[in-house]
Write a protein that binds this DNA or RNA. Structure first.
Lengths: 206, 206
DNA sequence: TAGATTGTTAATCGATTAACAATC
DNA sequence: TAGATTGTTAATCGATTAACAATC
C-alpha cells in the first residue's frame, strides 16, 4: 500500500475535494459523507471513498469524514502543508491576473518572483513584486528556492522560457501558452490551455 | 458509425491536433503522418489514427494526412468552421487577458460582449468592446446570438452569473472561477481551474 | 439496537495500445 | 515492386461503479 502508484485522475480530484472541504469548514460543518461530497461535486461517492482510501483510512464508518482532519490529510498528501515558492514569466494581463490569486492560495503555492523580457515591464510593480529581467531568473530561482514555474508568455517564446526554467532547476511547470512544450522526463508539466478548452466546448453545441 | 458516441477524451485531443496542424501549414508542410503527430504531441500514433477514424477516412495509406484537408475536417467536426459569438462576464485582469486572445482565435470563437457588475468597470473599453452592465446580458445574448459564456468573476458570484447565462439562453459555459457550479443538464460546462491545476502539480514535487 | 456510512473487493465499463491486412 | 502508413480489430490496460461486510 505504501508504494502504490496513484493515477493522475485521482490526483486531479484531490484539490477539488480540498477546496470544497475548505468551504465546509468556513460554514462550520464538522462532518461530511462521501454521499454529500459526491452530490456537490458531481462525483460518484464510491469513487471519492476509493480515492481517499489510497492514502489511508480517514473516515469513520456510520459517520463520515471529519472536515478539519480530512483537510489536514489532503493538504499533506498534496504537499500543500508548506509554502511552495513559484516563479512566473510573462507580466501581461494573464500574469497579472494570476498574481492576484496569491491571496487565495496563501498558505500553499505562492508566486514570489515575476519576470519579463520587455524593458517596458521590467521594474514595474505587480502587487508587492517588482518585475525582474530574464537574466535574473536562474539566480532568483536558486536564492528563493523556487520549485515551480508558470509560463504566461506568447506561444512563440514558451519553449524558450521552459528551457530556461529547466536550466534553472525548477521541478514543475504550469504552461498557459497554447502550445505543447517539451521538457525532460523528470520535469512535471501541466497544460492550462484556455483555447483548447474553448474549442472542445464548441463540439458540444447543437 | 453516424450515431456513435464520441468520448470526451477524443474531443479534447482534437483542438490539440488542430493547433499543431495550423503550425505545420504555416511552415508549408503538405503532409503529416500519425507517427510525426504523435512524436510532437506526446501521443500514441494509433490513438491519433483511431481518434480521426471516428469521423471519417481522412488519410491516405502509405502517405499520411494532407495537412490542409485535415484542418478543414477537424474544424468542421468541432463546429469551428463558423464564428461562434461568446460573452464574457468579469472585466478584471483575467477577463482582459482572455479578450486579447480574440486575435488568436479569430475565425472561430469570438468574444463579442463583455459584462461587469462594477460601476467602475461599466463603460470602459477592452480592445474594441465597451464593458456593459449585467442588466444588458439577456438582451445582448439574444441580439448577438451569443452561444457560449465565459465566467471570470470571483467564486462567490460565479454561480449567480452562471444562472444568468442559463436564463439568457446560452448553450455552454467556460468557468474560470475556482468553484464547481451547477447548471441544467442540457448546458455544457467546462472548468478552467488554474488553482486546482497548481495544487495537483504540487503532488508531483519530490 | 437500528440506521448510516466507511473501506474494499468484484464487476463493469471504457480507453489505450498492439498488430496487421489493405493499399498508396 | 518495396517501403510506408492508414484504418480497424483484437488485446491490454486502467478507471469507475456496484455491492456488501464491517462497524460506528
Amino acid at each position: 500500500m505504501k508504494e502504490m502508484k496513484i493515477s493522475e485522475a485521482v490526483v486531479r480530484r484531490l484539490p477539488i475535494y480540498l477546496r470544497y472541504l475548505n468551504e465546509l469548514r468556513m460554514s462550520e460543518v464538522q462532518t461530511v459523507s462521501s454521499q454529500e461530497l459526491g452530490q456537490r461535486l458531481n462525483l460518484n461517492p464510491a469513487q471519492i471513498r476509493k480515492d481517499l482510501a489510497y492514502f489511508g483510512e480517514f473516515g469513520k464508518k456510520g459517520i463520515g469524514y471529519d472536515v478539519g482532519y480530512l483537510i489536514e490529510k489532503i493538504r499533506h498528501i498534496l504537499k500543500l502543508d508548506q509554502v511552495i515558492p513559484v516563479a512566473l514569466v510573462g507580466a501581461g494581463n494573464l500574469g497579472h491576473a494570476l498574481c492576484n490569486y496569491n491571496t487565495y492560495l496563501k498558505n500553499t503555492m505562492k508566486i514570489t518572483a515575476v519576470f519579463d523580457a520587455s524593458p517596458n515591464k521590467i521594474g514595474t510593480q505587480i502587487n508587492q513584486l517588482t518585475v525582474l529581467p530574464m537574466d535574473k531568473l536562474s539566480e532568483t530561482v536558486n536564492e528563493q528556492k523556487i520549485r515551480v514555474g508558470i509560463i504566461t508568455v506568447p506561444s512563440a517564446v514558451a519553449q524558450h522560457v521552459a528551457d530556461q526554467f529547466v536550466q534553472a532547476g525548477i521541478e514543475a511547470i504550469l504552461n498557459f501558452a497554447p502550445t505543447i512544450i517539451k521538457v525532460p522526463s523528470h520535469i512535471r508539466i501541466h497544460q492550462a490551455d484556455f483555447t483548447a478548452e474553448l474549442h472542445s466546448l464548441a463540439y458540444y453545441l447543437d
